[in-house]
Amino acid sequence: MDFASMAKYTPLFVEGLKVTVQISFVAVLIGVVVGLVMALFRLSSIKILSWFANMYIQIIRGTPVLVQLYIIYYGTYPLFGFNIPPYIAAIITFGLNSSAYVAEIIRAGIQAVDYGQMEAGRSLGMPHGMVMRYIIIPQAIKNILPALGNEFVVLIKETSVVSIIGTADLVRQADIIKAATYSHFEPYIIIAIIYIILVIGLSSVMDRIERRLKQSDYR
C-alpha cells in the first residue's frame, strides 16, 4: 500500500469532494422544497392534488435511482432536443428522487401530531392554514428532523452513482486516479474516509439541531 503517492492527487480529491457536496446540497434543497409541496398535496382534500402526489411518489420510489439518472440524462435530447451537462442531470435526478422520500417523511411527521392539536386551534377560531403554520408544522418538525437527517446521509452516499454518466464527483476522481496510478485500492480507501467524515459531520449537526428543538420536552 502506498498512500504517500496519493498526496499529489489531493486537488482531484478536493475537486471531487466539492462536486459531491454541491450535488448533495442542491439536491437536498430541491428535495425539501418539492417534498414539502408533495406532502401538502398528499394531505390535501382536493382529490386531483393528492392523486398526483401519490402517483409521483409511487413512480419515484418504485424505480432505481440509476434508471432515473439515465432517463433524465439521456432523455432530454429525444424529448426536448438538447443535452444537459451530467452535473445538472445529477442534481435534478437526486433532487426529484429525494423529494419523494422527503414528502413521505413530512406527511408522516404531520400526521403524527395529535389531532387534538388541530381541534384545539380550530376551536379558538383559527383557520386551518393558521393552525398548520403555528401549531402543527412546528411540532411536526420535531418528528421530521431525525428522519430527514437520515435521508440526507443516504443521499450523500447515493450520489456516488453519478460518476457513471461522467460527473466529476469523488468516485469519478478516484476512478481517474486509479487509471493514472494503477493503484486499485488506495484511492477508494481515501474517498471512503472522506464519505465517513462527511456523514459524521452531518449527523452531529443534525443532533445539535434536534437537541435545541427538544427544549419543550424537558421537565
Binding site: 392539536q117 381541534e119 384545539a120 376551536s123 377560531g125 383557520p127 411540532q139
Partner: peptide
C-alpha cells in the same frame, strides 16, 4: 365558522395545550 368559534370557547378532556409553546 371561524368568526363564530371565536365566540365559543372549548375545553377538551385531554387539554390539548400546544406543547411547543410556553
Amino acid at each position: 365558522i371561524n368568526k363564530i368559534r371565536q365566540k365559543v370557547g372549548m375545553v377538551f378532556q385531554h387539554f390539548n395545550l400546544f406543547p411547543h409553546l410556553t
